[in-house]
Design a protein around this nucleic acid. Structure first.
Lengths: 230, 230
DNA sequence: TCAAAAGTGTTGAGTTTACACCCATGC
DNA sequence: GCATGGGTGTAAACTCAACACTTTTGA
């Protein structure tokens, strides 16, 4: 075969959630043709490095963050000119970070790193805006059939926070009673003894996602599902 | 950045279904370190070629086949030594072919091309056996929430064929009445005037998947779903 | 005592499951 | 006339959706 002139990159779409608002992590490029442009964290894969290690490395180098949840999203390689310099195929990863990870430090490899509300993303370089669309779609659909919402919340959370997360991300209303009944019926969240240090209103119990129970149930054919009507 | 020494390949897992049996398309390598070994069809991506075009090209070159359905499956690039020669990242595609496509001609680039029952796959090169596992999983889960079963059948089919396809692939029993009721209730299959040229028993009506209706419904929030109990 | 958020059951509608017999054809 | 596969309805069980008032706390 002739010499292949294609480079492989990884990119990460990291979602965070705070104050009823969904955020995406972006970095401002320090070098290259898009210096000072906001883009998704990511970069080229080293020749002896696993793809998933490359993403984790870039996230650390560019934003000083470690994520809760990471899965491959899609490989973007049909548009030959998505990078103006040369052919780049990018393996995009979908990631979730909880509020404890909201502190960023733009590290060696980025000029800046910041969370942007999904509804207010600046103009991005490359095809990153459309990659975010794909990731957002994935987030919405996964939320209804996998318990990934918990990875966007603190370890201990109020039911109302979980409710709001679902409402916000799925842009949908919830019947609080039915929602609570449903989630509790799964038996995958444990009630803690603690109460929230509330700001207003009656204090609420704090809950905690029990991943072990979930995994056990899943092995027995249990299927998590939250359907919210439009 | 240093010079990256990674090659990009595509591989295709093409499923076919005939006589209550699920098949996978394999080719026997003509060149290279695994000459005469069975592997998935696939090969290196050209520098100016879209990934999806590369798969289609390889399928034509190696097996003379055009598929009904093609989607990206997963990118295998965590195992650095999955190819013994050098680092290869492979973007795997999931494909479906209907019985009309069962005739293959091993073309220029393969020594041989054949359908193998999924239950009787020979020893494969590289990590292709595990790629097939991932694809098989995808097939099983997609079958229950997307109408892809139709892409494995002839254009006009008997209800019993659809039933058997679901039973076989999902390894599950079906209540024929309930299954028919469900599928018909969606309004996405049309009854034709024709009857099957049967081998034995009462002749059955032939049906046809109405993709236009399905797409229209989907845009209005319709959600295909077939759940078979274990 | 008021504002704010947490907590809590019941009923009707709709969906899903279970189940068995007759029909049309070729041999 | 028999073997083979095609075609069909109903009732019970279950799941989902709709709905509103009381409780606890801080200010």
């Amino acid at each position: 075969m002739d010499t292949q002139k294609i480079k492989i990159a990884v990119d990460a779409i990291v979602f965070g959630y705070r104050n009823n608002c969904l955020y995406v992590l972006l970095i401002k490029q320090k070098y290259g043709p898009l210096k000072n442009t906001w883009v998704l964290p990511g970069g080229f894969v080293k020749s002896d490095e696993a793809l998933s290690d490359a993403v984790k490395r870039e996230l650390k180098e560019e934003a000083g963050i470690e994520v809760n949840y990471l899965e491959q999203l899609y490989t973007f390689g049909d548009d030959i000119h998505r990078d103006p310099r040369f052919r780049v195929v990018s393996v995009a990863y979908f990631a979730l970070a909880d509020p404890a990870k909201f502190d960023l430090r733009a590290d060696t490899d980025a000029e800046d790193a910041q969370w942007f509300p999904l509804s207010d993303i600046p103009k991005l370089g490359y095809d990153h805006a459309s990659i975010i669309q794909v990731a957002h779609q994935r987030l919405k659909s996964k939320l209804s059939y996998q318990p990934i919402g918990f990875d966007l919340l603190e370890k201990e959370f109020l039911f109302s926070e979980l409710e709001n997360l679902y409402c916000t991300i799925l842009e949908s209303d919830i019947d609080r009673r039915n929602f609570r009944k449903k989630i509790l019926s799964f038996g995958i969240v444990d009630e803690t003894a603690k109460m929230s240090a509330q700001s207003a209103g009656r204090p609420g119990k704090l809950f905690r996602f029990n991943k072990k129970k979930y995994n056990a149930l899943e092995r027995n054919g249990f299927h998590f599902e939250i359907n919210l009507r439009k």
